[in-house]
């Protein structure tokens, strides 16, 4: 079973974000494999362990994004594809999906795994768009999955429980954080990753032109979330209980 996992190199979400106008600064900052993608890599590795085959990591980003692929290779994935091109600097989710689709189509794949959304951009639209370009069925919010003779059977998380869904392969699934426990890379894994192949491709290698990757969306403005207002302190002058009860009633919690 050949599995493609989409991975993204993002600025370390534990550090305060640095902005470059309306764009997140991606170069010259500490980058990491999107923590959400670790669950996808782990899901891919578990399937490979059950069914054999290969796990290929695909990413689009500046040359530094290779580090995210290396991280996944250290965990045990077999090879990587990094699409890197100056023309992709302002890529929106639609462009990203088009580019990833072109890269993924070059590989033989049975299943594509992606995170539900990235931890930096949060559009959440890329996986669905990618499934469309690949012309494969998509199942979101997968929590358990098995490959039953070419048919994918998954438990799909819902608010109240889960759906059991089947789809023929090839297919695309998205996994949420927490579906599994991503393994740590061992030192051996880290050393082995150095020798695993990573294809670095440009747009030309994928047969795409600058026109194919012109973004249709632009972020015009950013504004910070409103800071939480300071709480109200109720001094007990004998009526505090009443005031708190009124407050709770107003908030419709009692």
């Amino acid at each position: 079973m050949n599995i493609v996992v989409c991975v993204k190199h993002i600025p370390d979400p534990n550090l305060p974000p640095e902005m470059d106008g309306t764009r997140l600064k991606r170069e010259g900052v500490q980058g990491v494999l999107d923590p959400g993608d670790e669950f996808g890599v782990e899901a891919g590795l578990q399937l490979k362990e059950q069914h054999g085959g290969e796990v290929t990591l695909v990413s689009m980003g500046p040359p530094a994004a290779r580090e995210a692929i290396t991280r996944g290779l250290s965990m045990g994935a077999d090879k990587g594809i990094l699409v890197s091109d100056d023309a992709l600097q302002n890529a929106d989710a639609l462009v990203t999906a088009r580019v990833l689709a072109a890269a993924i189509k070059r590989a033989e794949f049975d299943l594509v795994i992606a995170g539900v959304e990235s931890t930096d951009g949060y559009t959440g639209t890329m996986p669905a768009t990618l499934a469309e370009f690949l012309d494969v069925p998509m199942i979101t919010f997968v929590k358990e999955l098995e490959n039953a003779e070419g048919n994918l059977k998954v438990d799909r998380q819902t608010a109240d429980g889960y759906h059991v869904v089947e789809a023929p392969l090839p297919a695309l699934i998205t996994v949420t954080a927490g579906v599994n426990e991503p393994r740590y890379a061992s030192f051996k894994g880290i050393m082995a990753a150095k020798k695993k192949p990573v294809d670095e491709l440009s747009l030309a290698d994928l047969g795409l032109s600058g026109d194919d990757v012109a973004s249709k969306q632009t972020v015009k403005e950013l504004s910070p979330a409103e800071e939480r207002k300071a709480g109200e302190v109720v001094e007990d002058d004998g009526t505090a209980a009443e005031k708190i009860a009124d407050f709770l009633a107003e908030a419709k919690v009692i």
Partner: peptide
């Protein structure tokens, strides 16, 4: 490689 492994141990 040592830096990567240091990062792994730190997260662990």
């Amino acid at each position: 490689e040592q830096r990567r492994f240091q990062g792994v141990v730190r997260s662990f």
